[in-house]
Amino acid sequence: MAWYFVYTREAHPGEHVTHHTSFETKLDNARLLRDEIGIRRPILVDDLEGTAHRAYGLLPNMTWVIGRGGRILYRADWTSAANVEAFLDRYEEGRRRRPPGGVVSSYVSEQIEFRDVDREAFYDRLRRNGPRSYDEFKHAERLWAERD
């Protein structure tokens, strides 16, 4: 099993963690992410134009599992380590299982899941990117409210 973190555009750029104006900026930010956030998984930096990110739909916190050989096994528009690990356990168990005299067939499912939202912790991360990152998100919340 291999795990990779693909570094994309900055979702909420600010004064400290800026949007990317060059590939060097992006690479520097990715190194800062490793050093300050402590990401242990290998980090792969997408190109400046977001070629890989675009191919997978541009959402900010996705997780995908690619099976040996290159077939997509799992996709989620939000990263939940517990959900990914539970899927991997079920998948590996399903692959190993061979009932006596029977066969195993695969199928595709899709579910809605829930996650806890710690808004204050998220706001702290925005402020870490820079004060304007928080201000812009609060403005975006008002824009979303006007759409509803």
Binding site: M1, A2, W3, Y4, F5, V6, Y7, T8, R9, E10, A11, H12, V17, N29, L33, I37, R41, H53, Y56, L59, P60, N61, M62, T63, W64, V65, I66, G67, R68, G69, G70, L73, T79, V84, L88, Y91, F122, R125, L126, R128, N129, S133
Partner: peptide, 17 residues
């Protein structure tokens, strides 16, 4: 692709937030 040819691969996309 050189990795997932040999092993199941988990790929997380993200940034600082």
């Amino acid at each position: 692709s050189s990795v997932w040819q040999r092993r199941t691969t988990v790929v997380e996309f993200g940034s600082f937030t």
